[in-house]
Design a protein around this nucleic acid. Structure first.
Length: 581
RNA sequence: GCGCCCGUAGCUCAGCAGGAUAGAGCACCAGAUUCCUAAUCUGGGGGCCAUGGGUUCGAAUCCCGUCGGGCGCACCA
């Protein structure tokens, strides 16, 4: 990691040092909790470049007058060479103005760090396992999976950039009833490939055409060996082959979005390895699993409801509404029974776990959190585990809801959308709102109205910069940092915004909110476009001022660094930074 | 009935782990292109931050209630 300290990080340190100085001088009591102290740009830039709430936050615990504390802090902070003014404002904010030279130095930091500008050591190399997508391997990815896939992938990149080691994982649910159904569906396609007239695919099986080639491949490999054989003879083979084929398809779909997982964990393998049994034994030994009666479902009780005794996990001990079965009455594992073993396994190789789930699984969050807390917390230090819910995406076409039904085969596939709209638009669109809010995705609108799409706005900013640099090069101008002092207020404004990127990365990573990067890029692009248009009226404000080589070199240097920043941000989102549009 | 998420401009959404006068895009109105890409920019109108309480120096943000919307409430995945 580079030694270069970014400006915002440096000032966080300066405020801490000033507080230390006050403690040393006896002005401030020692040992105050400074967690609430912030150093950030004020919303209104007329207040200054940076603002800290330290005096207000610490006054009470220090039993001091906020004003007096602020005055003492102002004296300390005023000693810094980079600070041109330190003032008390409002209820006790301390507003700082930072010398232009410090901002210009930040521009050089961007150049020095390049692709690593904004990279943080905050994560301290701790390992975070991010599990996302984990769609059932029974068909191609559809748009319902898209948001979680993009959010998970961007979050993984963001956490990596913020200094964590990240494991990108996909849990393959290849052990449940749905893959048996898949195997049966493929068997029909297999018989079809052998020339049999199979007619309509029976209700309850997967009718999709995507299973046709799977059946054909099996027919080519095995001939009619299993055509009229009993199910027991082929079901395992067909299931294995079908799942493998589905995973190939899913990986292809994910590749269209630029998503690649490092680990694919198989539920079937987990079960074959006896992991759920191990978990159960451990939980029973700790009195966390007992044989008991399952409560009737809340709300409407089904007519065929019958109480039955099952092995139950005491999730109520950890805040769940009721205890949850880990085995079915036939002795096989429930999804939850296998899932808790799976999460325990993940926790062995990670310091923290993050799951990205669709909101339709919200009801199962408490039990799995309970399980992780129980199984990893035996030593008193449970593995941090969070489930980020990604809300539903309402698919529209020209304002009309698109009904999706897997059974009817009317779902909108991810591949179709990506091919029509493009990876960048899909990814950026999914990242321009917070994940926990529902969103509309109007297919027609996104396909047609590329002009209104924010992704192009950001890409255009980058393209403009690149184009300017090309033009400058053609005219013999080379970006240089030798005369940055020639840059004025407008340029400094751009730099000040750009300089926020490092702290934005940290804040977004901490909040697990990659969408903040997208909004930052939009703001940065707006600032760039605004700056650019100054040159419409005033030729002397353009990047390239032919008669002033020094100024041009400085401005091109600025342009190059803003471009670098846009690339860094887009890289986190997995969106391409284009050279021209 | 219970749990989780959401409610901010006409529409789609931000609001940076409480902070100063609540922002952007679209739409609407008025302007800018002999000029590095106008896929851009400048200005304007538009808000009881669903609602009622509470917490405190300070609330769109935190807590509780109410209303409205979404998702879920099997031994399914």
């Amino acid at each position: 990691m580079s030694q270069t300290l970014t400006l915002h990080a440096a000032f966080a340190g300066h405020v801490a040092a000033a507080l230390d100085a006050l403690v040393a001088a006896g002005t401030l009591p020692a040992g105050l909790n400074r967690a609430a102290v912030t150093v950030e740009p004020p919303r209104d830039t007329s207040h200054g470049d940076l603002s800290t709430n330290a005096a207000m936050v610490l006054a009470k615990p220090a039993a001091m007058n906020p004003r007096a504390l602020a005055e003492a802090l102002v004296v300390e902070l005023g000693k810094l060479a980079e600070v041109t003014s330190a003032e008390i404002a409002g209820p006790g904010f301390i507003n700082l103005r930072v010398a232009p030279s410090a901002w210009l130095a930040e521009l050089k930091a961007v150049a020095a760090l390049g692709d690593d500008y904004g990279r943080s050591t905050m994560g301290g190399g701790s390992v975070i396992n991010v599990e996302y997508v984990s769609a059932n391997p029974t068909g191609p990815m559809h748009m319902g999976h898209c948001r979680g896939a993009v959010v998970g992938d961007a979050l993984a990149s963001l956490l990596e950039f913020a200094g964590h080691k990240v494991i990108r994982e996909y849990y393959v649910n290849d052990a449940g009833a749905q893959v048996q159904v898949l195997a049966r569906s493929v068997h029909i396609r297999y018989r079809e490939a052998l020339g049999e007239a199979v007619g309509e695919i029976p209700e309850g099986l997967y009718p999709g055409d995507y299973l046709v080639p799977v059946g054909q491949a099996l027919a080519a490999e095995f001939g009619d060996a299993y055509a009229s054989a009993a199910e027991a003879e082929w079901i395992d083979l067909f299931r294995t082959r079908a799942v493998a084929a589905m995973l190939v398809m899913i990986k292809d779909d994910l590749a269209l979005l630029g998503i690649r997982h490092e680990v694919f964990s198989s539920e079937a393998e987990l079960q074959a390895a006896g992991k759920p049994e191990e978990a159960e034994a451990w939980l029973r030994a700790h009195d966390l699993v007992y044989d008991g009666q399952l409560e009737a479902p809340k709300g409407k009780t089904p007519e065929d409801w019958e109480p039955v005794e099952l092995p139950l996990f005491r999730s109520t001990k950890f805040g769940d509404d009721q205890d949850r079965p880990i085995r079915k009455s036939d002795g096989s594992w429930t999804y939850f029974g296998a899932d808790l073993a799976y999460h325990f396994q993940k926790a062995q190789s990670a310091d923290a776990l993050v799951d990205i789930w669709g909101a339709d699984h919200a009801g199962t969050v408490k039990r799995i959190k309970a399980a992780v807390a129980a199984m990893t917390g035996a030593d008193g230090k449970p593995t941090p585990f969070e489930v980020r819910l990604v809300q539903m995406v309402q698919l529209l076409r020209g304002g009309e809801p698109v009904k999706m039904s897997k059974r009817a085969g009317t779902f909108v596939t991810l591949a179709d959308v990506v091919r029509e709209v493009g990876k960048d638009v899909v990814r950026f669109t999914m990242l321009t709102r917070k994940p926990e809010a529902q969103m509309d995705f109007d297919f027609a609108k996104v396909v047609e109205a590329s002009k209104d799409n924010p992704v192009f706005y950001v890409q255009y900013a980058h393209a403009r910069i690149r184009s300017t640099l090309r033009k400058g090069a053609a005219e013999g101008f080379v970006p240089a940092d030798t005369d940055l002092a020639l840059l004025g207020e407008e340029e400094l404004g751009l730099i000040k915004l750009a300089a926020q990127f490092p702290r934005l990365v940290e804040a977004a990573a901490t909040a697990r909110e990659p969408h903040r990067v997208a909004f930052f890029l939009h703001d940065l692009a707006a600032a760039l476009h605004g700056y650019w248009n100054l040159g419409n009226d005033k030729p002397e404000k353009r990047f390239i001022v032919a008669q002033d080589g020094k100024l041009t070199a400085a401005r091109l240097y600025l342009a190059a660094q803003i471009g670098q920043l846009v690339r860094n941000g887009l890289a986190l989102l997995g969106v391409a930074a284009v050279e021209e549009m």
